[in-house]
Design a protein around this nucleic acid. Structure first.
Lengths: 194, 194, 194, 194
DNA sequence: AATGAATGAGGATTCATTCAT
DNA sequence: GATGAATGAATCCTCATTCAT
């Protein structure tokens, strides 16, 4: 029973299904059919709305990116002070919505996709730059010239712990990962880690 | 005219070709044929020696792992003192043989493979544990209880910078990445980063 | 706001679009969607008016046929004498409206369609019979028993030059083709070609 | 039971099957699978040997062209005198091997293919040029300046009768078509048709 | 009158894998 | 030891067609 205005609904369903399917399978060898089935429609409709497999992937990346951005924005809204804001940024990265196993797996695969696909590459760059500038905004006032290197370390550690999280199927890592980056932040700001 | 004792030569050629091909293509969607062609033989022969595609991948992982292990071993042989050894370990990780673009790309893809393949997963675990115990061996005497967390941060940062290196096609990152981890080590050991 | 009496307008637009699209693409692998888009409507509406793809093709054939018939009728109205009428028939066949590249391409494809589709086959037969009887009407008084064969040769040459015109994308052929058939007519009527 | 040296056999079988299949279906909407099945192999093997559908078509064209060329060569070997050679050329064109319904249908479709595919276009041009130069070789000594136009008419009539033959599924046309072109030749050479 | 929504069916192409030689 | 031959299975994508609105 076709209804009008289905496009945004279908697209959203496909994007969600794509992330879930990638998470479930563990790599990008997911078929358009499996994504479409998961989203409750025919593969032809998925093609109709997205034009092709890669575009579904890109939309999924954009979605994950938007989710992350929203998480950061919300966290920053409640944070005060440079350090408070930095902690908020770090915690947002490991917020449960971004740290669900499917999402972590999807992110890892987006890194792989970015090696082949220029748009995917650009999208990932946007994420990296956003994280970098977010960190710099609050690190520079505190660290001056040392801010740049500190930001690189913090961002690198975030990504690294994400990557490692992909390996350990345990969900235990969330708070732990967050704690490690916060500890690094602390060291960068105050010196000796506690 | 077939020669005797070709097996190790063929296997080595295939393993090398697999890493190169994965690096060139940027993902695991490489065909057995393309690997075999790169190694100068028919795909049937590749199957004959390895039994299947996944086993070629696993052998390639083992090879990369062995390369890394050798690099560390060599570096440690020349190092003295706990800090010297730790620096050697870090530098070894970013040694040029491990940091060539193809190899970085291959590693990233091995992380993906590890999500699906148990043997690949186990192999990656071995790498992680080895790195961890290498770090702990020299960190514990220096940091005591804080060693565990410091090792996690250092290992995480190494992986994260590797991951990020995959994105920036520039080769500039090598010394930079190394320097960042050494800086982290310094902070962990002495307090405030310089 | 839908309007009344749209049917003939829509149908005409679709028929024209079909010929143009076939001409542009060069074969019958044109989609109903592309025809409909060219005609400024949805593919669903095209189906509504014609019932299916083949019927659109058949209507397009009928249209091309009608165009040709009209061209001949007009030409004959101004012609006098048997030879004058024969020349008019020949010239009409190569009149610019029938010799536009799209139209030539469409005709060629209709010949192909006629191999599969009985209605298309019948339509093409109608054209052939009409041409034949037109030629015979004026050839018989002049040639008697030899008229039949002469008509077959003239009709055959017309079709052959049409076919060859499809190949040479140059538009130069129009007058040339016409001249060749007129020369043949002359030979048939008077003997030695000039 | 795979054997060595199958390639030429398989390729020949596929080329023959392609022509037959195109002839049977009546258009180029033949599937690689159907061609392969007709040739007694899997569609994958057809792709292996030809690389793709269009290349199968092109090989089929080349084959038909070669068949025609061989027919002409044979006929010319036995012919004497300019007129005798011209008659031989014409008869060869309508020889039964070239005039089998499947072959005629295939030719027609190659004309369509030539509108899209440059290699097909070039191949057809080769046929046309060869026919033209064959005709000119013997017409020029006989007709001088009038040879060019005569050749165009004869070639055009051959193609036209071929085209028309595609329509009438009767096999009766062969000798008839041949006779018509011979009559045209006669007229061109001697004047008035008999 | 008109269209967006939806799908089933089909086809080209790729590839890992097997087998006979 | 080595390979050409061969295929089944899978996947992306396209498209004619139908239907509810």
């Amino acid at each position: 029973m076709p209804k009008l205005g289905m496009e945004p609904i279908r697209r959203a369903a496909l994007v969600k299904a794509a992330i879930d399917e990638i998470g479930a399978v563990g790599n990008l060898d997911v078929t358009v059919s499996s994504i479409a089935k998961r989203a409750g429609m025919s593969s032809a409709l998925a093609h109709h709305y997205f034009g092709g497999k890669e575009q579904i992937f890109l939309a999924a990346m954009r979605h994950a990116l938007a989710l992350y951005a929203a998480e950061v924005r919300t966290a920053l809204a409640d944070a005060t002070g440079h350090q408070g804001r930095l902690e908020a940024i770090i915690r947002a990265g490991f917020a449960s919505s971004n740290f669900r196993p499917e999402v972590v797996a999807a992110w890892l695969n987006f890194y792989v996709l970015a090696q082949t696909s220029t748009p995917a590459h650009d999208l990932l760059r946007i994420y990296q730059r956003r994280l970098h500038s977010n960190l710099m905004f609050d690190l520079r006032p505190l660290l001056g010239d040392r801010a740049e290197a500190a930001a690189a370390r913090i961002a690198g550690l975030i990504d690294g712990l994400y990557l490692r999280q992909g390996l350990s199927r345990a969900n235990t890592g969330q708070s732990d990962a967050s704690r490690q980056v916060l500890a690094l932040l602390n060291t960068e700001l105050e010196g000796r880690p506690q």
